[in-house]
């Protein structure tokens, strides 16, 4: 093995609910595991799309808030050692001389792994951006707020109409010099009560309003906002938070020589794809009778990881035993 190349039994692609539950099961099966996710936070679709919504079909929970389910999954997986690589996506896949898989990620690191589990859901999430923000990047234009202190004493503009836009506004109020929300629709998707709370606490709300231009030399200084039946307005801006949701795409995974059915990966009853030791579970996988639900994805994660365990260590049993007999 070359210097600088990490090694693992299993790389799990995707830290959504299915990937995290698979990480837990990989811990149960004593597999050396690395989980990779393109977003800076774990939780996949839940975190990106509905962290505040109640999920009603997780076994044993009459209802659980999305963000709470994610933190529980992290707690459960964290009972065992595994490595979680966030803000990192997979690029290339090669086969090494000894038959392992060598993954290269967007951070440039290389991992030799004996098996791979693709729990990529809809694919790699990337934050949506504005057409006018796509040119040369200006400092102060953010898709994620890395820490709230970057908003301290600043003129903060938040673009978007969902819960996360309003949450950023509420978080910014005690810190920022001014807070403005710009949403291109007249109606917010966020709860009306929280929109009203931001307004009551001094946030200026421009809806509908469209950002026409970003101004600044190196760092953002102002944005030009267009509202219907009004002159374009120039707003001072030190931090522009683009909270516009996410796009997803499978990207490089489509070039790995795995058999697909449309935008999903064909798997067998053991969740193995057309390439041996590459498995897929959760929304990304496809087989006859598939039902695309979180509860099914959890089951698929357990099927996949237990089969990976016996594929890598043939003397082990497929059935891990009942968890009531385990000592974690």
């Amino acid at each position: 093995m070359s210097v600088g190349i990490e090694s693992s039994d299993l790389v799990i692609i995707g830290a959504g609910p299915v990937g995290l539950y698979a990480a837990y099961y990989a811990g149960v099966r004593s597999l050396k595991t690395i989980v990779i996710d393109a977003l800076p936070h774990a939780g996949g679709q839940i975190t990106a799309m509905y962290p505040e919504k109640e999920i009603h079909d997780v076994a044993g929970f009459a209802s659980i808030r999305g963000a709470n389910l994610v933190s529980n999954l992290l707690l459960q997986a964290g009972q065992y050692n595994y490595q979680l690589g966030l803000s990192e996506a997979v690029n290339d896949l090669e086969t090494t001389a000894n038959g392992n898989y060598r993954l290269t990620t967007t951070t440039g690191r290389q991992i030799d792994s004996r098996a791979i589990l693709i729990a990529a859901g809809l694919g790699k999430f990337a934050p949506k951006t504005l057409a006018v923000a796509q040119g040369s990047p200006l400092e102060g234009v953010l898709h994620f707020v890395p820490r709230l202190s970057v908003l301290d004493g600043q003129h903060v503009l938040i673009a978007g109409g969902g819960d996360s836009a309003v949450d950023w506004a509420l978080a910014a109020i005690p810190r920022a010099k001014s807070v403005t929300i710009i949403h291109r629709r007249p109606k917010f998707r966020a709860h009306e009560a929280s929109v009203e709370e931001t307004r009551a606490r001094g946030v200026r709300i421009i809806a509908p309003g469209e950002i026409q231009e970003l101004r600044g030399d190196g760092a953002i200084e102002a944005v030009v906002v267009r509202q219907p039946h009004a002159e374009d307005e120039v707003l001072q801006c030190d931090r522009l938070v683009l909270s516009l949701g996410f796009t997803s795409a499978l990207g490089p995974l489509e070039k790995w020589g795995i058999e697909y059915v449309g935008s999903h990966i064909r798997v067998g009853p053991d969740m193995q794809t057309s390439r041996e030791r590459i498995f897929a579970a959760g929304d990304v996988s496809e087989y006859p009778g598939k039902v695309r639900l979180i509860s099914v994805g959890f089951g698929e994660a357990a099927i996949a990881v237990n089969h990976i365990a016996v594929t890598l260590f043939p003397h082990r049993h497929l059935f891990p035993g009942h968890s009531t007999h385990w000592t974690a």
Binding site: L122, R185, K187, R189, L244, T247, S248
Partner: peptide, 12 residues
């Protein structure tokens, strides 16, 4: 035609 669906669609 509120288009709120357009804003949330992850695959456009």
């Amino acid at each position: 035609c509120a288009k709120s669906c357009v804003d949330v669609c992850p695959v456009d």
